[in-house]
Design a protein around this nucleic acid. Structure first.
Lengths: 217, 217
DNA sequence: AATCCGATATTTGCATGTAAACTGTGCGGG
DNA sequence: CCCGCACAGTTTACATGCAAATATCGGATT
């Protein structure tokens, strides 16, 4: 009956606020006043409070005690640190994927990669992003390690938020080449090679990122 | 003025419940009834609710909607997955520590290692654990990457909880040797060697862990 | 004109009320 | 003897009240 998944108002509010943060309706730095949000969303303050607490826990918002929460800002410096973490986690996911997974994964990855190439040739930015994310999602799902999946989801959340502040163009052709290298390594069944290829990919993204954002903290 | 850090009741309740979970007063599987806890801790339900929600977010408790929260159980299977993650994160921390840090770190690590060796010779279990944790804490602090620090803190939380369920003896002599190898690599200023040494250490811990827990899920 | 000050409005954090849903229990039917 | 079910107690999730702390804004003073 409900758009999200559970029927708890607090969950719906949480999802709603998340979306508004990602779309920029709630810009980094915006105050998250519980009474004001409750009025706007036409619910009581309780579920809004729960939702805001969760946003803080997710680091989509930051709070100071007694002073309320604001939408978080993720600068280039923080983003670089996140990418250091992402590098080793994506490497782990790729290695585990090789160790745990079979032909199903390879087929799915070929499909995602083909779509990725098509989107790059067409210059379709949305499709590029979607195919890129699908490739990574397939690998981490295949890792069979729920911790890696969860942590990489968190990383992706932070990256999405950072894109509201810092501009991050991925370098689409390089990404396709990197993905192809990862897929080749996975196909060859070599866990160490897959790990290295995945790490190299993220490492290059990190470098591109830092080059673009010369503005410092 | 307060024992914990802030003067919010919700924070105090959170810390209190955390401690009770770690000491085993609240055993894995125990229900976290908000009204019952509120009565026992002599506060109202609101701060207890906030604290329980945070415990769930930390995965010290798990909840099903409309059914309440219980203290989480971390089995051998989950712990192995956590150690996969810990391996790459400790590796990253060691590498970054070499890249960012100077003689201060090396001196402190020598100190921690000496204490570790002394404790092992004396068979002082508490001191062994303390020195072991200090060594790892020094390395991650030195990484200069707040994400790594935070994630490894989370890992440590999960591991502490798991020790309530699964028995985890670290193999004290092996750990001392591993730590010495990590320190040597850090001292030599070789980031890649430090990463490999740290990873090898956690990898061995993981193996020891799985050997001990042949009981499955 | 700029700055300081104080009154007002808003917000946080805690307390408490309540409907609906869930738990468990004992009893009657099969 | 076992199973299902009504019932009573408990719990969750949401709504709302309220004191203390904080931000906001208009006006007076230098």
């Amino acid at each position: 009956m409900n758009a999200t998944s559970t029927d708890r108002i607090a969950d719906a509010v949480y999802e709603r606020l998340r979306e508004e943060i990602f779309t920029g309706e709630l810009a980094p730095g915006a105050r998250l006043s519980v009474p004001a949000l409750a009025v706007r969303l036409e619910v009581s303050r309780s579920p809004v409070r729960d939702a805001v607490l969760r946003l803080v826990q997710d680091r989509l918002a930051s709070e100071e005690p007694r002073r309320g929460a604001v939408v978080a800002r993720v600068g280039a410096r923080e983003l670089a640190a996140i990418y250091d973490v992402r590098e080793v986690l994506e490497g782990l996911a790729a290695r585990l994927a090789v160790e745990n997974s079979g032909r199903r994964l390879v087929v799915a990855l070929h499909d995602a990669l083909a779509e990725h190439e098509r989107a790059v040739r067409a210059g379709d930015v949305a499709a590029i992003t979607a195919a890129d994310m699908r490739f990574h999602a397939l690998v981490r799902q295949a890792s069979g390690n729920t911790e890696v999946v969860r942590l990489l989801d968190d990383v992706q959340t932070q990256v999405r938020l950072a894109m509201r502040t810092t501009q991050v163009t991925a370098g689409p052709r390089q990404s396709v080449d990197d993905h192809r290298a990862i897929l080749t390594a996975i196909e060859s069944g070599d866990p160490a090679a897959a790990e290295l290829a995945a790490r190299a990919h993220i490492h290059r993204l990190r470098s591109a990122l830092l080059d673009q954002a010369e503005d410092g903290v």
